[in-house]
């Protein structure tokens, strides 16, 4: 379980998050939605201890991130950041392989290598494994980075807009994979999404932020409704049902 208590954060004098208290159950996919500037990325960065906490606390299964060594946290949670350009010239296999670092600390064993090969296969990266990351397209690089977070094999997986740069084929593949991770492996996935229909199709829970506050929270089946989503984004979002599933029709 992820417990966030009274979390507030400011960049300089600009407040970003206001007194956020959230409790996310273990297992399942939680989608974080919200308009630009709502504080989604800041929330995820704080949850992944990439920035120091200013006020409040975050704990995973009772493990307080402020009191747990960072090495230990790296085996508990993995993060895929929104802007993860790879400045280094690494092969895809090496890059994904560094996702195992928290487990081997510099001495990869057969189990680590097997995990990397499995992840390369799972993300259709095997044919690209020997290529340098700078020779990949943006979407291919994004897939390599997702594979790197995936191979870290943590109970908690935090992803900040993992679908950016992915085409429909890989966006759906990734969402289905996250779904499988939650269902078959009991992992807890927290994913920031821009396209709300992916949340409707794949998330168990939805948390929506607006102006640094939790504006909406609950099971996806309950809260994915026009009356609840429209005020958050400040626009009319019709939600229709198609073959029994909710679909937002916000394109026109």
């Amino acid at each position: 379980m992820i417990e966030i208590r009274n979390l507030s954060h400011a960049e300089g004098r600009t407040p970003i998050l206001h007194d956020i208290t959230l409790s996310l159950p273990k297992g399942g996919v939680t989608a974080i939605l919200g308009p630009n500037g709502a504080g989604k990325s800041t929330l995820l960065s704080l949850m992944a201890r990439l920035r120091p906490l200013q006020a409040g606390s975050i704990a995973y299964d009772g493990m307080d991130i402020a009191a747990t060594p960072t090495e230990r946290l790296a085996r508990k949670l993995a993060i895929l950041r929104q802007d993860s350009t790879v400045g280094s010239r690494l092969t895809v296999r090496d890059l994904v392989g560094f996702g195992r670092f928290p487990h081997h600390r510099g001495r990869p064993g057969p189990a680590d290598r097997a995990a990397v090969e499995a992840a390369l296969g799972q993300f259709d990266l095997a044919p690209l494994a020997g290529r340098f990351t700078e020779e990949l397209s943006g979407g291919q690089r994004q897939r390599a980075l997702v594979a790197m977070a995936f191979v870290q094999a943590t109970d908690y997986l935090l992803l900040d807009e993992p679908l950016s740069g992915l085409d429909m084929y890989y966006a759906r593949m990734l969402m289905r994979l996250l779904r499988r991770l939650a269902e078959e492996h009991g992992r807890t996935v927290v994913v920031v999404l821009h396209e709300i229909n992916y949340a409707a199709a794949h998330a168990d829970r939805i948390v929506a932020l607006k102006d640094g506050r939790v504006a909406l929270e609950g099971p996806a089946a309950e809260v994915f409704a026009s009356a609840r989503l429209s005020p958050i984004f400040g626009m009319e979002i019709p939600v229709e049902r198609w073959h029994g599933r909710p679909v937002a029709l916000h394109y026109t």
Binding site: E71, A74, A78, I79, R81, V86, L90, F98, G99, P102
Partner: peptide, 21 residues
């Protein structure tokens, strides 16, 4: 320290995410 330097070369956030000091 080779692996640590390679990871540091990926940037602070990536390094912290992998449990590097």
């Amino acid at each position: 320290l080779a692996d640590r330097f390679t990871i540091a070369g990926l940037g602070r956030d990536a390094a912290v995410g992998l449990g590097l000091r």
